[in-house]
């Protein structure tokens, strides 16, 4: 790699997004689309908005970049009301990713990524350096820069969509079912990469999905909306799974929420060094595997405990009772 003449885009700190008693009513409709929504997405966190169709999750997201305007209440980003900022500059400071990607078919990948940098008057060198940096970040070969969107697969297009949204390093990102149109394998792959990427780039993200499993995987916190745009519950995945606020949320997160909680923690977290002694026998799982994998391994082998290994090292053994204890809420 050659040294670039200009410094990389300075990191812009993420900002809180606060919904303060927001109401949105569409004309001619009796019930509001968003009803008195108050929630705070903390700086650097990912908030997944989930809910049924018509639950207002996309509407709630589009209120933030004012693709839809709310009727009352307020939304602030980093303490500033979104209504106090010019709508064009507001949107340029918010990365926007949609399910159908919406790449511009007549522009090369590089040109797609450079749309907003160009409008902001960046120099050619800075844009080229940033484009390379972004292609690396979303794990696309730099040779893609000269291709057109139609030459890319769905997964590759969505990577470009991500790169484009990140072009000017916005403090906030809005993502509307970004991986919803991808096949399951590509989807899992790009979800994992986005999680990785999020640890490199510090962004406040609002992520809309109808898939509770995706929300559990991607979200630091999950906001469950119900019909009529009412917030049913807002909390961490673990909180929602362990203590659903009501039958609606319990139903929404699924009857298998006990199993889902197993996915949230790793074997490393529950293996106790002074726990069961290792007798060198039975199945083993990696320390970074989820409890769900641990349980599955244990069931498949028909034993009542499993060895937890970290490379060549054996960390200890975990019993069925420990796994059960980890999800039933009691201490391990």
């Amino acid at each position: 790699m050659t040294a670039t003449p200009e410094p990389r885009t300075p990191d812009r700190p993420p900002a809180d997004i606060v919904f303060d008693h927001v109401v949105k009513r569409y004309p001619g409709q009796e019930t509001p689309a968003i009803d008195d929504l108050s929630l705070t997405v903390r700086a650097g966190e990912t908030c997944c908005l989930v809910g049924p169709s018509g639950g207002g999750k996309t509407t709630a997201m589009k209120l933030v970049n004012r693709l839809i305007d709310f009727d009352s209440g307020d939304i602030t980003i980093g303490g500033r009301s979104i209504r106090s900022v010019d709508v064009t500059s507001l949107r340029r400071d918010i990365g926007y990713v949609i399910q159908q990607v919406g790449l511009f078919p007549h522009m090369t990948i590089a040109a797609n990524i450079a749309v907003i940098p160009n409008l902001l008057g960046w120099s050619g060198d800075r844009i080229r350096a940033r484009t390379d940096e972004l292609l690396d970040l979303v794990r696309l070969d730099r040779a893609f820069a000269k291709r057109y969107p139609a030459q890319l697969s769905g997964g590759q297009q969505q990577r470009v969509g991500l790169a484009r949204a990140l072009a000017v390093d916005p403090p906030v990102m809005l993502m509307d079912e970004p991986f919803g149109a991808l096949d399951p394998i590509t989807r899992t792959e790009i979800q994992d990469e986005f999680l990785n990427l999020e640890s490199e780039i510090d962004k406040t993200v609002i992520f809309v999905t109808h898939d509770i499993d995706e929300a559990i995987k991607m979200g630091d916190r999950i906001a469950v909306l119900r019909q009529g745009g009412v917030l049913a519950q807002y909390g961490t995945a673990d909180g929602l799974l362990a203590h659903p606020a009501d039958d609606y949320v319990a139903d929404f997160v699924g009857a298998d929420r006990g199993l889902k909680r197993l996915s949230l923690r790793t074997m490393r977290e529950i293996v106790a060094p002074d726990g069961l002694p290792d007798d060198g026998s039975g199945p083993s799982v990696d320390a970074d595997a989820s409890l769900r994998i641990g349980l599955s391994t244990l069931f498949a082998a028909g034993t009542d405990s499993v060895r937890v290994t970290d490379g060549d090292r054996v960390l200890g053994r975990v019993s069925l009772a420990q796994l059960q204890g980890a999800v039933s809420g009691s201490t391990v």
Binding site: N65, L67, V87, T88, S89, L90, R91, R92, D93, I94, Y96, I98, Q100, V101, G102, L103, F104, P105, V115, I116, L119, G161, R164, A165, L174
Partner: peptide, 11 residues
């Protein structure tokens, strides 16, 4: 969707 993306990006 290209238009929706463009609007959302701040064009």
């Amino acid at each position: 969707n290209a238009i929706e993306a463009a609007e959302g990006m701040g064009l």
